[in-house]
Structures are given as C-alpha cells and as structure tokens.
Design a protein around this nucleic acid. Structure first.
Lengths: 204, 204
DNA sequence: CAAAAAATTGAACACTGTTCAATGGTTTTT
DNA sequence: AAAAACCATTGAACAGTGTTCAATTTTTTG
C-alpha cells in the first residue's frame, strides 16, 4: 500500500469526516466548523485543502456517481432480455436513491448555482447513468418489444419519472396511505408500460 | 373595500415584499433583513407579525396552491373527453411550474423539516391538486379508454412523473441538446400512453 | 389624562461560508 | 551549518443568516 504523507492523511480525514457527517445529517446540516471540530483541525485548513465547501461536496458527488453507475452496470449485465434489463436498471436506480438519500440529494437535488462549478469532465460519469438506460431502450426497440422513437429522449423521460418518485417520497409528500413500495413498484411497471405497443383500438 | 388598520397594512406590506423578493431571487436567497430593509421596518417587527421565516413562506405556499388548483380546475372543466382532460390537466400543472419556478420550489421542493410545521388543514388544498387528476383517471377507466386499477395511486404516479420532469429541467440537469418543450411534450404523451390498453402480443 | 395594551426598535446570540495575515515546521539552496 | 524558500496550519476577522428579547414608542381603553 502506498504510504500516505501527512498532508494526504489530513486531506483524506477531512473527506472521511465530511462523508460521515453527510450521511448522518445531510449536506445542509453540516458546516465547515463541524467538520473541522471533528477532524481536529482549524476551519482554515479545510480551505487550504479544498477551495470551498462546494468542492468538498463535489468530491462526494463523484463518489456517489461511482456507486450508482456500478449498480446500474451490474444490473445491465445480469439480464439478457432487454425488457427485464430495463426493469432491473430502474430498480437499481430507485434502490440506490432510497438507500443513499443524502448522496442522492447532493447528486441530483442541488441547485444550479452550486452545480455550476461542478467540473465539466465529471459530468461524463454522471451521464453514463442515463446512457445505460438509453442503450437498453434501444435494444428493446430493436427486438420489437417496445416502441421507442428516440432512446436518448426516452431515457431522460424514464429518469425524470424515477427522480420524481424518489424526491416526492423523500420529501414525504406522498399520501401516507400509499406505501413507498407500492409507489416504487407502480413506477417500474409504468416505465415498462409506457413503452409497450398500444392496442389498435386506443383513442391514441 | 374594508379599510385596513395600520397593523394590517404593515402585515400585508411584509407579505407583498416577501412575494416580490421570492419571485425575484428564490426563497433561499432572501433574508429577513432584506425584507425588513425593503419594507422599511426592523427585523423584529417581522417576527411580531410572523413567528418565523417559515410561517411567512407557508403563507406564500398557500397562495401558490390557490393559483395551481385554479388552473387545474379550469382545465378540468374545459374538456369533455377525459383523455383530453388528462392531457390538459398535465399541461396546466407543467405550465404552472415552468412559469412560477419560485412558487413551485416552496410548494414542492422544501425539505420535510420546513414543511413539518406546515399547518395540517392547509394540506387539504394541496391534496386537491392530486385529486383532480385521480377523478379524471377514474373517468378514463369508466369509459374504458384507459386501464387504471387504482386512480388515486396512479394520480400520484402521474404527479411524480411531472414533478421529476420539472425539477430536472429547473435544476438544468437535462442534456441541453434536448429542448425543454420536447421533454414536456414527451412527458404528457407518456402519461397518456402508460395508461392505454396494451396490445395483446406484448411481452407484458 | 392615566393606565393598560399593542406595536416597534435595536442590540444581542449563535450560527453560516470564506479570507488572510501571522506562524511554525520542513525542505531546499547556498 | 546557516539562510532562504516553501508548505502546512492557525485564529481572528468579515459579512451574512434566523431568531430572541428587553426597552421603547405608539395606540387604545377606562
């Protein structure tokens, strides 16, 4: 194992503490002072290693996308049938979000002013999350299992759908008579349904 | 018109300024001091009329739901055909959100800790927004135009879908090669499609 | 007019992200 | 080894946040 210099250790320690606090309290309930206190250093030192709280957050955002994409790509490989693959992909996304709400928040719910500084090259990894869905939709269309005019657009549509379900669940806005599981399962079903061939006698 | 007492005038003035600042800057970029400065009073006075910034926000949230529900109910009345009505309802919701992003933010994007204090009786008006969709879905099913097992659940599903599209658009997370209009139209189409009768030969 | 009540102020508290001159500690250069 | 350069670190400060509260003014009531 590569020996870490004292500086690297402190940098890692700042990240470790921030990650821990993030998961415990969410990004908006942690401060640079809290991090410094728990690391055992001054606030100034955090700003020596990271140029802002946002940059600290961005590092964790990247971690989050690594986790998500890993889950999605493993789901992708696990299913031959592209329709099943689409369902598995959706489930992977939704489960990741439910299990890691604080990561999900920094990855997908930060306002543009905080994300504007997010390094452009890192967006690529973020985009892979949508591309894996687009690929699968393309496969579904190719095998004539679904109607998909524009896979990339429809991937964004599916993504939006899931994002909406997740954010409303996490904001506790769904009527409590509807269980979270019910919402999740219904969402997956409708993501499939909306791409199926419609019956001929539908009123368009 | 009822003559307003000085106290009522100041209360209204605080609300007017807050509304104006909300629309200009969004809830997270306005402070009680900014409001006080623009009203021409001290911060303390704001806390005499409203017990917190959240209570001030809640008043505007109610305004927002009045606007939204009005739009939805007028769209509801405008269409005999329930499928067309569903499309019109969706369009009303989406347009409201796009035209009033700051209202939408306080209505649907505030975290539970701020909404927890939101008075329970006011939630009723908020719920009407989902109930009008549920009614329409029920009508679609009754006339055998759509397959809707549980209208209330499916109304939540449609709502989540729209909420996801709106929030991702407003957070500027959609690939810029996809126009906002394209997303909106695709979403409305899919809300209809996902409820249609599927063709018999679909791989479920 | 005096007393009670309501409305209003301004200072304070405990936070927030961020900056920066001053410091101590290592290396590197002479 | 001494001097210079560099890196890492601190603590105080700045300007901002939501909120509280004793003191004060203004208005209403008896």
């Amino acid at each position: 194992m590569a020996t870490e210099s004292k500086t690297e250790i402190i940098r890692r320690s700042i990240l470790d503490v921030t990650r821990k606090l993030l998961v415990e309290k969410g990004i908006n309930n942690i401060s640079t002072r809290m991090i410094a206190r728990q690391v055992g250093c001054s606030v100034g030192l955090i700003y020596f290693h990271f140029k802002s709280k946002d940059e600290l957050t961005h590092t964790l955002i990247e971690e989050g996308f690594d986790m998500l994409v890993e889950r999605q790509e493993s789901a992708e490989k696990a299913h031959e049938n592209p329709v099943e693959r689409l369902a598995a992909l959706s489930r992977a996304y939704l489960n990741f979000a439910l299990e890691n709400p604080e990561y999900y928040e920094i990855m997908f719910m930060l306002k543009p002013e905080r994300m504007a500084r997010y390094p452009a090259e890192k967006y690529r990894k973020a985009r892979r999350s949508v591309e894996v869905v687009a690929r699968t939709l393309k496969d579904c269309a190719k095998e004539n299992l679904m109607v998909v005019e524009d896979p990339y657009l429809n991937a964004h549509i599916s993504w939006s759908f899931m994002h909406g379900v997740i954010t409303l669940i996490q904001a506790q806005r769904i009527d409590k008579r509807i269980a979270n599981d019910t919402m999740i399962e219904a969402a997956i079903e409708q993501i499939i349904r909306m791409h199926l061939h419609p019956a001929a006698d539908n009123p368009i």
